[in-house]
Amino acid sequence: MTQSKPWIPYALILPSVVFLGLLFVVPLVQTLWLAVSDNGTPSLANMTTMVTDLHFGRSVLNTFLLTLAVVPVQIVMALTMGSMVAKMNGGRETILWIWTIPLGISDLAAGMVWLSILQNTGYLNSILFGLGIIERQTAWLTYQTPVALFIGIAIAEIWRGTAIVMIIIVAGLNQVPKEFKEAAEIFGASPWTRFTRITLPLIRPALQSALILRTVLAFEVFAVVYALGGRNFPVLVGEAYNWQNQNQNYGVAAAYAVLIMVISLAATLVYLKAVKVDPERLP
């Protein structure tokens, strides 16, 4: 009986708590201190350096634009994919398996995949040239083609990151009993009404999780951007990386890290409020 030894659950939890404490809380506190200190004394110097840096404004703008472009598309795509797969009788697992392949690829590798498509000598140019649409190699990923670069990065990110959203949403859809949809159908709801008035409200918890997870990940976008655009498309994590490795200025890098964390927390709070999950209104 575990009741006779009440310390057992705590003992079992302890290793993970110690692990998280050492590898998460300690670095977090250190980073926070690093960001708001200068040579061991409290200071806003790192913040000032970050904010006045040439790339700061663009990296904030780019990160937000990319998040705004990618997350809604991913949610809509995941909902569509999830709804389609729910209608399938056979082969469902196979399709889901294929759709989740990008999840198994590291984000840097994903960036390289899309680089091989979009670079000057890449597959896209080869195809366009073969079809006679372009006459010579066209550059898509330079600072002179910011729109094409943005679209390229967005597509790569969508390709890479939709699967995780879809998995969460499929799990949510699976929990909606089919009787709800059938009842709605009997009482005259069209397929679109069934989706908006029955399915969507019932998968709110999954939707909320997917939105939070995907948005936080979008604010942390780096490897794909780095592979495709380098510094032609500055983003927040990329700047942190540059200050850390290129400039060897850990303080400013820490300031960026803290900023990303604050943005992620803020986004999470916004979602928790906006996509409220009322346990009273769940099945």
Binding site: P177, E179, F180, E182, A183, A184, E185, I186, F187, G188, A189, I198, P201, L202, R204, R281, L282, P283
Partner: peptide
């Protein structure tokens, strides 16, 4: 005909009352 055009209503075994 679609269910809604058949002029009927249905009560389900697990009620299927919309929780939201």
């Amino acid at each position: 005909l679609l269910p809604k055009d058949r002029g009927l209503a249905m009560v389900f075994q697990n009620y299927a009352v919309f929780p939201h």
